[in-house]
Amino acid sequence: MNYYLEAFRKYATFSGRARRKEYWMFTLFHLIATIAVTVVDWVLWSPDSWLALLYFLGTIVPALAVGVRRLHDTGRTGWWYLIALVPLVGAIVLLVFTCLDGDPHLNKWGSNPKHDELGGGYDAPYPGQYPIAGQPGAYGQQPGQYPAPGQYPAPGQYPAPDASPYGQQPGQYPAPGQPGPYGQQPGQPGPYGQQPGPYGQPPQN
């Protein structure tokens, strides 16, 4: 019902985007209301009553507007609505367009309304982007987790175990550029005067 009322709040708004749920929920309640008004027209008044006609005239603009916004959501201009004027085939093509999922990315008519309703206001990431609000990123990482699992470095690790050039675990000797276990700096002798091994291994006794 909220989507039906939303169409009237955007009475003549032909800009922006409308997701499938918004369009089809409006269409459903619009159909129910049309049937109800027609029945009331017939029962309480007469077949010549103007009640159904007045309802049709009052809703034609928001119905067209939400249809145009639905086409925008699929990345198509609202002028595609005119294809409905083509006998038979045009109505089928327009039906297919309104059933398609919307463009997950930002397009020239605005951001993805599906993600806006989730409260994030973000668009779906292209491959490699990180990530929309509340959803895993392109590589499976959860919100707040950076970088993707297995990438260098993992949170709180330096370096990541599977990404370290020397294979050392966090806290092991030494991370590149950090002191060794005896306090010596990289390139300095060990506690007994021995030179550090290549690649920063502990000094040999």
Results as ranks from 00 to 15, higher is better:
4 Y>S: 03
5 L>H: 03
8 F>S: 04
15 S>L: 00
15 S>I: 00
15 S>V: 02
18 A>K: 00
21 K>E: 15
24 W>K: 03
26 F>V: 00
26 F>G: 01
28 L>Y: 03
35 I>P: 09
38 T>P: 01
40 V>N: 04
43 V>E: 15
44 L>G: 15
54 L>Q: 14
55 Y>L: 13
57 L>A: 15
58 G>N: 12
58 G>K: 06
61 V>S: 06
61 V>M: 09
64 L>W: 09
68 V>E: 00
72 H>Q: 09
78 G>W: 02
81 Y>C: 04
81 Y>M: 10
83 I>Y: 02
85 L>Y: 11
87 P>E: 07
92 I>H: 05
96 V>R: 06
96 V>H: 11
101 D>M: 08
104 P>M: 03
105 H>E: 07
106 L>Q: 13
116 D>M: 07
119 G>Y: 09
120 G>Q: 08
125 P>W: 02
126 Y>W: 11
130 Y>F: 07
135 Q>L: 11
136 P>T: 08
136 P>G: 04
137 G>Q: 08
138 A>I: 07
139 Y>N: 12
140 G>T: 07
141 Q>G: 11
143 P>Q: 13
143 P>S: 11
145 Q>A: 05
145 Q>D: 10
153 P>E: 13
154 A>H: 03
159 P>R: 03
160 A>L: 05
172 Q>I: 02
172 Q>K: 02
175 A>P: 07
182 Y>A: 10
183 G>C: 02
185 Q>T: 10
189 P>F: 12
189 P>D: 14
191 P>R: 06
195 Q>L: 12
198 P>M: 10
201 Q>S: 15
202 P>E: 07
203 P>D: 14
